[in-house]
Design a protein around this nucleic acid. Structure first.
Length: 808
RNA sequence: GCCGGUGUGGCGGAAUUGGCAGACGCACAAGACUCAAAAUCUUGCGGGGGCAACUUCGUGUGGGUUCAAGUCCCACCGCCGGCACCA
């Protein structure tokens, strides 16, 4: 054995070489391939081995594409505004700008340990004024198009983070970041009209090569439903009450109506007798937190004393108030059909409201209903002209019929709400708006962007609903860009998602001070071909980015409507709970974080890269086990020795080794194309074992070793580059073409076939590949010998696989 | 409650989509080398039975389809994730 495998020396040598002579260069002729990682926020904890996983996957894929002749766009940047960065800074008692810069430096150092082919000339940082200039510019364009607007309304408020939140940031009534119970607070907020894009966001999902799970989550988040609005007259009053329903077919069964307690007419519907109870109910509801309202499923409500008239049959239906009706969905009022809706049924039972069945399974009414009949198929009964119709048909036709009859209209609704865009925190992009007493809200002129985030003594959140920026009077007080009179700046900042909604466009033209991205570069390098990151952004970041891209398409900045053609979600890397042994998220508080730094030192970057893939299927969560690295390291050492000891054997290309070579290429390539990265590593190990066996008798030729090295290069770049040079090349292994395989060359002349009796394998025979069925069966029966007893009922031969003799 | 995903040795996981279950690796055990250890190499490694060739059971549970089921169908159970009064 000549030179032992020394990962430290090799990795150091090649990293320096690649820094000086990058292997991924844009010669202007190659086709581009844009492979993007979700950029990290620079946390003070640094990276753990879980972060590496996604970065390794994307780098392997990038290098694989590179070896197919693409110019690979593979950039990295920093999502550095927002709550996590600010909370960290507050905790450490430093300014967020300082802690962020420090964290970026540390994480950048760690990311470089991966030896990915990131192009740092493309780096972006959302907190850089030259970057957020364009984040603000987009906001101004949205304002001009009427998509950014101000509204005072009760919004989700996190009392711990002391800021308003978007709907998407509230998980089960709790703050997505800190887990505190979210309350409601009435605040004047900037909103983005994402709902104007609801249909396009929904429809275009079909064009995307994304995990079905993510598409489904977005579909459900948008929550489009089809139905009708129906106008109900109110007895003794002028106003009508409009309800939204997806089941207009059940209109004859409406026996009461419920309004959200926040409904505009709620108070005025009360009579002398009910006034006190109604006002009490409205007041009590207003005190409930969103968590209470989510969890208290027991129905409550109050009768207003007023009646509505069912426009279809003139029936008088009592109007109730209840908090199970949401004020901000549909019209905030519903017609209730207790016979065919679980919630209405529960409410009717509790308050003794009549139940009228209008859909029947078999034409007969159910006696003593114990639960609602919610299926949307059956025969209409108790429904006047509609009797006898099939309800599923009627459901589709009823909206148009109602529209014709003049008391309603066909309509659709969405669960998606407009995006609450203001944050009452310091560490974000200032919203570039000036409030003028005469002109109203006026955008900061574009030539004055970026509107810099001012220096401030105390950037702690105030908790009052005002941003810390409000205290900086000489910043707040300004003049109106429109009329020149004294005016005040908007003091709220943008949410963390503002920069991340479009950063991927900026990488390819990150130094352009005239445009967000030049038309030329956008056309040439965008959009993203492959986007890799965790599934936690299935709705938030990925929905916002799609919205921004569609807006930028509408105003002519880019000519594509979807930012990310293909999406891959890698699974988490979990630690083990020290006591129970169960898989748990890696976290500082559990003390089970594994840092990549020590592993790189002890085993090397190549080993860690391979282990990140070998640990399990890339799309599933996996459990980290340090000991697994040993096996990887042994494999690399064995392979190193194989090449170093046998590269000069001068073995000829025997048919045996050629077969082995084609199988190796086939296994690695097909598994890689399927993103089955864990089994690619298995294939490497298996073929390495085979070659080591063959090398003992000096059967392994140089071309086979070279092929192995090339295939291994995207996965373990340093050792592969070193060995490629040892094999006599001057150029980088990444200039090599990806090897091809020939399926014919992989085949053996003889094949093994399992021989079964009644489906149980008894023996294995080796036969010629082209053997005829009769010959195969004869050989099988002969091999079974006297094991074969009884009467043969059936003989089955599956070519190349199995012989099964069925006996009785 | 609804919708996804998932369940295979002591552990991480394979299985060409219905065709020899447990590839590859970890851990473990025995042996070789060594004064010794480490490293390395060789062999073994799902359970039961047998000196053995072999035999039998076995992919969360219970049924079913099939010559053949981890894979398909029906009914359950456990874990993980999403949604959750959206009318």
């Amino acid at each position: 054995m000549a030179v032992p495998y020394n990962h430290r020396a090799i990795e150091k040598k090649w990293r320096k070489e690649w820094e000086e002579h990058p292997i991924n260069v844009n010669d202007g002729k190659k086709e581009k391939y844009y492979c993007l990682d979700m950029f990290p926020y620079p946390s003070g904890n640094g990276l753990h081995v879980g972060h590496w996983r996604g970065y390794v996957i994307s780098d392997v894929w990038s290098r694989y594409k590179l070896m197919h002749g693409y110019y690979v766009i593979h950039p990295m940047g920093w999502d550095a505004f927002g709550l996590p960065a600010e909370n960290y800074a507050i905790k450490m008692g430093v300014h967020p700008a300082d802690s962020t810069a420090k964290n970026i430096a540390n994480i950048k150092r760690q990311i470089n340990e991966i030896s990915a082919i990131y192009d740092w000339d493309m780096e972006v940082n959302t907190t850089d004024p030259e970057f957020y200039k364009w984040t603000q510019w987009i906001f101004v364009q949205m304002f001009k198009k009427g998509l950014a607007y101000e509204k005072e309304m009760p919004i989700n408020w996190c009392p711990s983070c002391k800021t308003g939140l978007a709907n998407e940031e509230v998980v089960n009534g709790k703050c997505e970041r800190c887990g505190a119970d979210v309350t409601k607070k009435n605040l004047k907020q900037w909103m983005l009209k994402i709902t104007a894009y609801a249909d396009r966001l929904l429809d275009d999902l079909d064009t995307l090569d994304w995990p079905e799970k993510v598409k489904k989550m977005q579909t459900e988040w948008i929550g489009k439903s089809y139905g009708a609005e129906v106008d109900f007259a109110v007895e003794n009053r002028e106003e009508k009450i409009t309800v939204y329903t997806t089941r207009p077919d059940t209109l004859y069964g409406a026996t009461f109506m419920v309004l959200a307690p926040e409904h505009a007419l709620a108070t005025s519907l009360a009579t002398e007798e009910t006034k006190a109870a109604v006002e009490d109910y409205i007041y009590k509801t207003s005190l409930k937190s969103s968590v209470d309202r989510l969890q208290d499923k027991e129905k409550t409500g109050v009768f207003t004393g007023s009646y509505a008239i069912n426009p279809l049959n003139g029936a008088k239906v009592p109007i109730w108030l209840s908090d199970y009706v949401l004020a901000d969905y549909g019209t905030g009022a519903i017609m209730c059909v207790p016979a065919h809706d679980d919630r209405d049924f529960e409410f009717a039972k509790k308050f003794n409201i009549p139940i009228i069945q209008v859909i029947s399974k078999d034409g007969k009414e159910i006696e003593d209903m114990t639960e609602a009949y919610t299926e949307a198929s059956g025969i209409m009964i108790n429904s006047g002209d509609w009797n006898g119709m099939e309800s599923s048909v009627l459901k589709k036709e009823a909206p148009a019929m109602i529209e014709k009859m003049g008391f309603g209209r066909k309509t659709t609704n969405y669960k998606l709400r407009d995006w609450v865009f203001s944050r009452q925190r310091y560490w974000g992009e200032p919203i570039p708006i000036v409030h003028c007493p005469d002109c109203g809200a006026v955008p900061v002129p574009e030539d004055q962007l970026p509107l810099l985030l001012p220096e401030v003594d105390s950037y702690q959140p105030t908790g009052t609903g005002e941003s810390p920026l409000a205290d900086i009077t000489d910043w707040v007080n300004t003049t109106c860009p429109c009329c020149g009179k004294p005016a005040k700046r908007e003091t709220n900042t943008m949410p963390q998602w503002a920069g991340s909604s479009w950063y991927f466009l900026r990488y390819v033209d990150n130094k352009n001070d005239k445009e967000l991205v030049s038309k030329e570069k956008a056309d040439k390098y965008l959009p993203v071909d492959m986007y890799i990151g965790g599934v936690e952004h299935a709705v938030l970041h990925l929905l916002y980015s799609r919205f921004y891209t569609k807006f930028l398409y509408d105003i002519g900045v880019v000519d594509f409507q979807e930012p990310f053609k293909k999406l891959f979600n890698q699974g988490m890397v979990c630690g083990r709970d020290k006591e129970t042994g169960a898989a748990t998220k890696m976290s500082k508080s559990l003390g089970n974080i594994v840092s990549p730094d020590d592993i790189v030192r002890d085993y090397g970057c190549d080993s860690l890269r391979l282990y990140e893939l070998f640990i399990g299927p890339p799309e599933l969560d996996s459990i980290w086990d340090d000991r697994g690295l040993e096996g990887i390291y042994r494999f690399l050492t064995k392979f190193w020795n194989l090449v170093m000891d046998h590269k000069d054997d001068g073995a000829p290309e025997s048919s045996k080794v050629v077969k082995e070579r084609h199988r190796l290429v086939y296994d690695v390539t097909t598994r890689l194309e399927n993103f089955s990265l864990n089994t690619v590593i298995s294939a490497f190990m298996e073929h390495n074992n085979n070659l080591c066996d063959m090398a003992k008798t000096k059967q392994v030729d140089k071309k086979t070793l070279e092929t192995f090295v090339i295939l291994l290069a995207p996965f373990a770049p340093h050792i592969s580059e070193e060995l490629y040079h040892e094999l006599g090349h001057d150029a980088s292994v990444f200039t090599a073409q990806w090897p091809e395989y020939d399926e014919k060359a992989m085949e053996d002349d003889e094949i093994e076939i399992a021989v079964q009796i009644n489906g149980k394998t008894k023996t294995v025979i080796t036969v010629a590949k082209e053997i005829a069925k009769e010959d195969a069966l004869a050989a099988g029966k002969e091999a079974l010998g006297d094991k074969l007893t009884g009467n043969i009922v059936k003989e089955i031969y599956v070519p190349g696989r199995i012989i099964n003799i069925v006996v009785k």
